[in-house]
């Protein structure tokens, strides 16, 4: 069932991607990856993932912000749920929380690295089911 669901991991840390991939594949999600802003945008257009795990700081400090902004301002792609997954905390001076800074940063959920595997999987399931419901309406 899950292998029909495509999840795109966007992160420049290859080691990190590998460990997240292991978690996702344990639930048989189909996993694809991109490692910088440019290739992420191309891949998103090409494979149309069902969900995106998005890192914030890649080649540039704000790659993740840019991707998120572009996706959420595109009539088609705004329907793809974005789960931000980053080591950036509010201590680094960035705004990111969808709860407090939703207007500025429109990700659907945020999770801080390192993640608990069970927590990550739960959040993914929740986002998928929420977005699935919207689609049916």
């Amino acid at each position: 069932m899950n292998n029909e669901i495509k999840i795109l991991i966007v992160d420049d840390d290859l080691g990190y991607v590998k460990s997240i991939r292991a978690i996702l594949e344990s639930k048989e999600y189909t996993v694809d990856t991109a490692h910088n802003g440019e290739s992420a945008m191309e891949k998103i257009k090409k494979i149309k993932p069902d969900l995106i795990l998005l890192d914030i700081m890649m080649d540039r400090l704000d790659d993740g912000f840019t991707i998120c902004y572009r996706l959420k301002h595109d009539p088609e792609m705004r329907k793809i749920p974005i789960l931000t997954i980053s080591a950036v905390t509010d201590k680094t001076g960035f705004k990111f929380s969808p709860v407090t800074d939703g207007e500025y940063f429109e990700a659907d959920d945020y999770i801080e690295k390192p993640v608990k595997a069970s927590d990550l999987l739960k959040r993914i399931e929740k986002l998928l089911s929420e977005y699935g419901k919207q689609e049916e309406l």
């Binding site: 997240i20 690295k113 595997a117």
Partner: peptide, 15 residues
């Protein structure tokens, strides 16, 4: 964070 994530994946038996 990356190391921590590996440990988590190993400890949870994913590999």
């Amino acid at each position: 964070v990356s190391i921590r994530q590996y440990f988590e994946v190993i400890l949870e038996g994913f590999v």
